[in-house]
Design a protein around this nucleic acid. Sequence first.
DNA 1: AAATGTGAAACATTTCACAGCT
DNA 2: AGCTGTGAAATGTTTCACATTT
Lengths: 220, 220
Amino acid sequence: MTNNNHKSISGMPSLSLFRLSLYLRYVKALECKGVESVSSKELSHRFSISSALVRKDLGFLGSLGKRGVGYDIAVLKNGLISALGIDKHWNVALVGAGRLGTALVRYTRRAEGPFRIAAILDKYPQRMTKARDLDMEVLHIDSLPEAVQERDIKIGIISVPGSAAQDVADKLVAAGVGAILNFAPAYIEAPDGIFVHNVDFIVYLENLAHHINTNSDIAD
Amino acid sequence: MTNNNHKSISGMPSLSLFRLSLYLRYVKALECKGVESVSSKELSHRFSISSALVRKDLGFLGSLGKRGVGYDIAVLKNGLISALGIDKHWNVALVGAGRLGTALVRYTRRAEGPFRIAAILDKYPQRMTKARDLDMEVLHIDSLPEAVQERDIKIGIISVPGSAAQDVADKLVAAGVGAILNFAPAYIEAPDGIFVHNVDFIVYLENLAHHINTNSDIAD
DNA sequence: AAATGTGAAACATTTCACAGCT
DNA sequence: AGCTGTGAAATGTTTCACATTT
């Protein structure tokens, strides 16, 4: 009975995948409290969705639940970790050692999860005094290819100014990463097969502005 | 012919709304270059979507295009700004003046958009030496209600540790904000009518890990 | 009795295809 | 000729409803 078999769930809706991460964090919290099992109903309340949707989401992991009982915390946690592909460590390169980049490095370390900042790079490594307390050398961006190869880096994080973002993305792709998380205020693209998430602060604020305007007419 | 009439597009798909922000940034860039008009085809290429979808999205703003020609840049820009509800300034409160918070403040200022950080708050304002170069007093979190009232703050940004996030969210809601942007590693909830975006770094990384695993079998 | 797992229905979003302007 | 705007079809996602299991 191996549990090393990566499920590799390709047909899962992308929103389901995001929710799996939320479930995992909640399940971990329950585990810390010593809880032994959880129902789709409890999860549905926590995240304001329907219990049927929770069951559909968890159905992608296989039949992990017990009818009449619920989901065993340990089984569910393992299933989620396996489905998310975080049952091993992932080395990450962070490009842009400014304030945001430094915050992200510290944040990743504190999370103590499967993600390791294996390299920090910048165009001006010597100027990055902000990053000094990170206990890690800031490399010049030109050493990206070697860093990615030698340190088996699969994911790149971009925290440079918007004007430099696409260029950095191209370099990350050329160096061989498989996915990019972009925090710069620019929509970047990558070739097929390279996954990109553009996380744009201003886009979220604009979204909220619209919602406030539309919902409750607080217009002036 | 007023152009102050807020369109208040309620029935727009939420993904369309996000794309409007992307279109706006691109349209602004074209405007700077002196371009006069743009087609749905060009926009569709830029964002790797179908041109029909672009036209559907822009259709929510009204019939702004000219058949056989395309969309006038100035007209489109105004339409997007109006639809997004950013044809006026929005005062924002940022809670959590650590590294991430400081980065977000500077980022917002640099963007020179409609969003103004009108108050920065923290549980330990005096300790926030990182925020010193922001040229703004860091207030104690207890003065949130007065700050929100006096400064007409409609949006709250949370950049505190995950354990404090829901508590801060509750305080923001009590103080009267209409929407919350949460960067803390916690899924926070708010009453109906208050919009929340949970932007969770780790969730994005887990998502990418899954995609890499699923797509190209780099699994050892 | 309680909760899962799942087809089928309902709903939402995207693409297709083409009529209608410029 | 070129491009928008838009019903209709296709696709994707969520909810419903209930048989099934503990």
